[in-house]
Amino acid sequence: MNSAIKAKHQRLILVLVALAALIGAALMATWALRSQASFFYLPADMAADPPEPDRAVRLGGMVESGSIKRAADGVTIQFVVSDNKARIPVNFSGIAPDLFQENSGVVAEGKLRADGTFVADNLLAKHDEKYVPREMKDMTAAQARQTVAETR
């Protein structure tokens, strides 16, 4: 009798511990997601409601015509991402993807500096018809058509 109760107890304790761990994991995960997920911005959104300076976010839009400039070090580029409503200057040091070019879509991953420049640590460009960054799918039809036409 006594041992039967104990057996039940042990099982219950194990189940409770496992449940507590999993619920703890879920709570922690939701908390972490709220603070760590990186949000996607269009230039207009970013201009209207800028993210905090040290927060990793993604910025997507078209690379403005004639805006790509190379710095003297040969590896840093500056360009402007726009959505015809707002323009965000972007700084990027690194090797740009092959299909990164003016008048074509881009998603920049990085942080917005206090002076309003977006510092990207990674650029995603449209690779081909089969691979489009998720965010670019929702650009306006005209932008998409233009993007496809430009990068074909």
């Binding site: 879920a26 922690m28 995960a29 997601l33 760590q36 997920a37 990186s38 949000f39 996607f40």
Partner: peptide, 24 residues
Amino acid sequence: LGIVLIGTLYPLVAEAMGLKVSVG
């Protein structure tokens, strides 16, 4: 497993609710 599953599915759920995020 739970942490990875939640982090992987969250952007999909968020997008269904009109919020675009990525989790890294």
